[in-house]
Amino acid sequence: MMHSARPQLIGLPVLETQRLILRAPQAADWPAFRDYRVSDRTAFTGGTKKEHEAAEQFSSFFGHWVMRGFGRLIAQDRATGLGIGHFGPMQWQDGAEPELTWSLWTAAAEGQGLAREAAAAMHRWVFGPLGLASARAEIHRDNSASHAIAAHLGGKIIAGLRPTWFDDGDVYHFANGDAV
């Protein structure tokens, strides 16, 4: 079976941090993303999915960039070259406030400040070069590591607002100009 050359997403930003490079999603990221999405690591982000559901979500990362001009970047460990998570704004509904997302794919990547480092770079890009006016984030009640990142990024909890994606948690608001 022949394949046409795979057209890559072009013109996407590359964000560099001390330990990470955040760059466009690539087909080669699929196995690591799948392993994350079908694992129980997704308890705070919509729950464990079947492989075909994970495939649809992964494919949608690419189309999201085409339609919105922004989307998820993959954080790649400078030392190992491995993708370790996805970071970026998503907007599934026209006119809705974009949602900032950050997810580490493996337990091995946790506990080193990598999510905070990548999320901060993503936040600087979203409110700098990308120029979004505001954004939000939905965080599960029990996802303490993610709450800490939202607070670090200057997010403010919107009182009384409950998340769309799961039963209990907080919705954070981020405005352009709020300091990290």
Binding site: R6, A27, S59, S60, F62, M67
Partner: peptide, 9 residues
């Protein structure tokens, strides 16, 4: 979006 992504993947 996933349909569009199929082309890229």
């Amino acid at each position: 979006a996933a349909v569009l992504g199929h082309q890229r993947l």
